[in-house]
Design a protein around this nucleic acid. Structure first.
Lengths: 193, 193
DNA sequence: TTTATTTCTTAACTTAAGTGAACGAATTCA
DNA sequence: TGAATTCGTTCACTTAAGTTAAGAAATAAA
């Protein structure tokens, strides 16, 4: 399981055995059951997450309705905006599968970054990369219709469509569950007739 | 004009006079006329921009149509995804006003970051902050209708509505120009009747 | 296993966005 | 200045998403 972590890190910087051990000694591993909440709306937090195994979901509660905006699966990292802005969280973070995580926090990061400047570099690179990736995702979202978005998702993250309930995918695509259902039927119809 | 720059930097790290002079000696200032293109589709680049004065626009050319996805104005920084991914650009970057910029590139950044670790820290903080801000923007976009998005923009960036042509705002909001025009008429009608 | 709850689909109807076209206003260019 | 282009609005029509409601299917709980 630590292999996943070090494979991930090696994309950005190369670590010595000593450095690897220093990371492991921090003992950041945590497992969470399906349904457990990592962060509540209104809560303050300084925790960051890295998913080793499983899936976590971000959702807002608006007029009593859950609005899902993101999923994080294996090899993906999440630092909620509330951690960066030091404000109460505007959304919930929930495990939708039994999940194995790495949980860090800003204190640990400050310490590790000052001890190993390499980590500072890695964090910058990671943040820049995620920013660029998210920018592309956002642009694609703006430039396409719900149907195109769904087909796009089918291409890029087919796993999500398997492991996530449809009504959560719907709000992830910016539409209502009924619309996603209808849109899927429409696509099937096209590929048949 | 350098005041804007150092005010911006001071939000993240504090610089000595020597450090400030080191930055200035790099001579990164560039002015660009309205209509000038900073980056073409298909082009490779390693440049980052910081807007001191003016406005730049990001757009894709899809089926002969310009799809505007972002605007950057005073005190905003942009590193195009193609710089991070080292791929040809998927979009255009254009000045829609006479613009005064700071133009950096990855070579300069590598050098400055290794000479002044402070900069590495600043870049990480900035990237994290932009990532969080963009995340919130994306989430709001998903969770709202075109009309709500327009009203939201009116609140948060009223300047944009003044300085940017409506058809560019339309695709920024993810809709067609005619729809934006109609939607505005609808809002006026509500506030009257 | 039975019951309860959640999830997905379908349908009829409403609302709003996309499309194509026309026209006047504003801006740009020669 | 006059001509040409771009820009914004309006309209009629088409398409698709939102809404409300009902029922089937799948999943979770007792």
């Amino acid at each position: 399981m630590t292999k996943i972590l070090f494979d991930f890190i090696s994309k950005y910087v190369s670590l010595t055995e000593d450095e690897k051990n220093a990371i492991l000694s921090l003992d950041l591993f945590r497992s969470a059951k399906k349904g457990s909440i990592l962060l509540n709306e209104g809560q303050k937090s300084n925790e960051s997450y890295f998913v080793l195994k499983g899936c976590i979901r971000i959702y807002y509660l608006i007029d009593g309705e859950e609005k899902t905006t993101a999923f994080y699966t294996e090899m993906e990292a999440l630092t909620p905006p509330c951690v960066i802005n030091k404000t109460p969280s505007e959304y919930y973070v929930l495990c939708i599968e039994d999940t194995l995580l790495l949980v860090s926090n800003s204190d640990i990061e400050v310490e590790v970054n000052s001890k190993f400047p390499k980590f500072e570099v890695m964090c910058r690179m990671l943040a820049e990369e995620l920013l660029a990736k998210q920018r592309i995702d956002f642009d694609e979202f703006k430039n396409s219709s719900p149907e195109q978005r769904y087909l796009n998702l089918l291409q890029k993250r087919p796993d999500l469509i398997q492991r996530v309930p449809q009504h959560q995918l719907a709000s992830y695509l910016g539409i209502k569950p009924q619309s996603l259902s209808r849109l899927r039927a429409r696509i099937l119809e096209k590929n048949k007739g």
